[in-house]
Design a protein around this nucleic acid. Sequence first.
DNA 1: CCTATTAATTGACATTTGTTAAGCGGTCGC
DNA 2: GCGACCGCTTAACAAATGTCAATTAATAGG
Lengths: 231, 231
Amino acid sequence: MRIEDAAVIRELPLFRNVEHGAFARLIDAGFLQRFPPGVVLIQESDRADFLHVVVEGTAELFAGTGGRETTIELVRPVGLFILAAVLRDQVYLQSARTLERSLILMLPAESVRATLEADPAFMRAVVMELAGDYRRTIRDLKNLKLRNGAERLANWLIRAELEQGATGAVEIPVEKRTVAARLGMTPENLSRAFATLAEYGVRTKGARVEFTDRSALVAYAKPDPLVDLPD
Amino acid sequence: MRIEDAAVIRELPLFRNVEHGAFARLIDAGFLQRFPPGVVLIQESDRADFLHVVVEGTAELFAGTGGRETTIELVRPVGLFILAAVLRDQVYLQSARTLERSLILMLPAESVRATLEADPAFMRAVVMELAGDYRRTIRDLKNLKLRNGAERLANWLIRAELEQGATGAVEIPVEKRTVAARLGMTPENLSRAFATLAEYGVRTKGARVEFTDRSALVAYAKPDPLVDLPD
DNA sequence: CCTATTAATTGACATTTGTTAAGCGGTCGC
DNA sequence: GCGACCGCTTAACAAATGTCAATTAATAGG
């Protein structure tokens, strides 16, 4: 593994306070691997064998039942999936695929669990990480149950624009179909949602979205810190 | 606290392996209190001050934004809420109210966090509990995004019938409006969903629901272990 | 037992979302 | 440079869901 990759992983909240030797052993047991776009990294219903860390690129977590499929989450550097299944030694509830060329660190489930037992600092970090994952998912559930498609898109755009530096414009970093699935709608519906938001000053040219009237958009979206903000 | 209440709490996976003294201290710091129906126990956006354990009765976790409201979960004996907010010392993302006369144990957040630091067994149990909470929520999210109302109801009924002893009948233990909110629909829509399921042998008389053709119902519901079964 | 109140159901209608099909526009490989 | 492909958009229609109003059923109090 490159030294700079180890460094960024070391800085993750999950690993920051892990004892030096335990971290070294954990990393040593792992595999750092590059994947082309579209590779399925894990499959729902498979026994959880690795904790995955996205070092570069993007991973999409998705799931299906009864012939339908949806996107649960997009994981970017430096983020991980799926801790819960690894810790409980159970099957994955979600699949994951790369959306672009990606660098993924795979830590054997057994090593992760061993580190958990060996290092209280890691255990503490795991508790915080899991609690955060749970809360993010609850936010998502609220978003989905309490808003319609256009409202979800509006809030998603506001959040993305903020994360990209509040320049009044957003670059959508994935295919729109993926955004649609992430927001719980069809691509056709996403187009309609964009059309709806045009009334509130949202201008789209391809993957680039501009806000010409932020206050109107915010008034429509009614962002709520208990739904839209990270902890 | 009555001795039998302490005993059932002791048997919870979360507390089962906690060291004796630590458990005693934690329980001692708590309050066991009886509430009439309809009492709001916690309010979203409030700082998490207590871990709540439902000893008797039922608590409804709900949340709202933009004037709308929905039910996230129903907690029955012996279950707890909301561990994640307590551990992270953050605000609740959900409110909770009693649906009936209930006995609730309230453990001060500070004591819970202290026990976490004091007892590795508790920390381990917390990890498993949180991982389970996360997975349950992911299942819920999949259910919501991948199924329509009638399908969600069908699977909910199948699960409830199983939990009540697989007698071919289900007693719905809460108001139907609550079931509707739990399943992400309006009460009117729930009525329509029941009407749809009548085609598959679902007969309802008030709160009692009977299956006259289980295989037809299952064929319609297409239950999926990755969505519908507990871990 | 009766009445007042609330929940549940039903119907009509509006809105939202999904589906199907067509067309547009860009990209990639030949 | 051209054609095939793919993603996105648009339109028309269908299905699902929400809303409003009225009625019926269930429940609790007096």
